[in-house]
């Protein structure tokens, strides 16, 4: 009896000891699809920075998937220390559905908790055979357009709203005309993939479509991976400012006692080095000094903000993408 008790305590000591001594921290960053390459680079940089600053070893795991799906996984109990998602609406749900973060989460970090931005551009085939220069060319009959389904893809919602914003501006804010315009656009769509990467595959690998509406970073990446001799990036006269947002998941970091390192992880995204890494991965930096340095890589384009044109994500989601919204109406007429 005594002996077995001794064994148990020995075992317990063995199990407890490592956590008590060395500060080996793990973080889980739950992100969306196209940030794979960005966070691969950033995680290494942050681990180095944190080691130098505190002596602790931090290893960061990243999980990628459709933005909405990832938010749902966190709500359903995935222990994410930080969430870095495609749009504020998905992060909002962490408060709305799970009460995992406070209501005013977006005020906690600079720039509305969006450490980098992006926009929507066109990817066309080499030589631009259909002469696509702006949104008006995309809705012309005979042009085949590839975009994912806005009901299932965060990126596709940005596409949809960018087209809508362009039509609004062109027609003096006439909502009916805007709907007609977007309706015409979707008439030209032969396949609706469920996610941004799927749409890129359809366009690039299957050879379907004349133009792909894509995240700017995704378009740059496709061009880099597949060679500039195959595709060209076309920047429309007006597009939307996409702000992917980040947050610490309070319930999780309090439970796992990782708040300090998780917060530092997100704050470091705003530092010079973090911004450099974002820019190298084709996200538009927000820090002026870095933005200036990479000025040439990002074409100038007039960008509208979702809060100004659509009154924020909650409203845009309800008007356009919820069941019975404008997107459903386009297909049910």
């Amino acid at each position: 009896m005594k002996k077995s008790l001794f064994h148990i305590s020995l075992l317990a000591a063995l199990v407890i000891a490592p956590t008590a001594q060395a500060a080996d921290i793990t973080l889980l960053n739950v992100s969306y699809d196209p940030t794979r390459e960005l966070y691969q680079d950033y995680n290494t940089a942050f681990a180095k920075y944190w080691k130098a600053k505190t002596g602790d070893t931090v290893s960061i795991k990243a999980s990628h998937g459709g933005s909405g799906k990832q938010a749902r996984a966190i709500i359903d109990g995935l222990d994410a220390d930080v969430a870095t998602l495609a749009l504020a609406y998905d992060v909002d749900q962490l408060y709305e559905k799970g009460r995992l973060i406070p209501k005013d989460w977006q005020k906690r970090l600079g720039h509305n908790s969006a450490p980098y931005t992006s926009t929507i551009v066109f990817l066309v085939r080499k030589g631009n055979p259909k002469k696509i220069k702006d949104w008006d060319d995309v809705v012309k009959p005979g042009v085949s357009v590839i975009t994912p389904n806005p009901k299932t893809s965060g990126g596709a919602r940005w596409n949809y709203l960018a087209a809508w914003a362009y039509a609004l501006k062109k027609n003096n804010n006439d909502e009916t005309k805007a709907k007609e315009f977007v309706g015409k656009l979707f008439k030209n769509v032969p396949v609706l993939d469920t996610g941004a990467r799927g749409a890129t595959t359809t366009f690039v690998e299957r050879g379907i479509g004349d133009v792909l509406l894509a995240w700017e970073n995704e378009a740059f990446l496709a061009q880099k991976e597949l060679g500039p001799d195959k595709f060209e990036i076309i920047v429309p006269s007006l597009s939307i400012l996409a702000e992917p947002t980040v947050t610490v998941v309070d319930k999780v970091v309090d439970k796992r006692k990782t708040r300090a390192v998780a917060t530092a992880y997100l704050e470091y995204l705003y530092s010079e080095e973090g911004q450099e890494i974002a820019a190298q991965n084709y996200y538009r930096p927000i820090l002026d000094s870095v933005a200036k340095k990479y000025e040439k890589s990002f074409p100038k384009v007039s960008l509208v903000k979702i809060d100004e044109v659509f009154g924020g994500w909650q409203k845009a989601q309800k008007t356009h993408f919820a069941d019975g919204g404008t997107f459903d109406e386009i297909y049910q007429k």
Binding site: G68, R72, E96, N149, V189, V191, L192, T194, G198, A322
Partner: peptide, 24 residues
Amino acid sequence: FIAGNMPMVSEITPLIIITKLEQY
């Protein structure tokens, strides 16, 4: 992957379920 997922034409019911989940 093969369906094309166009509303009213080639959208299967399991996709409708996923779509609804995607909207929470």
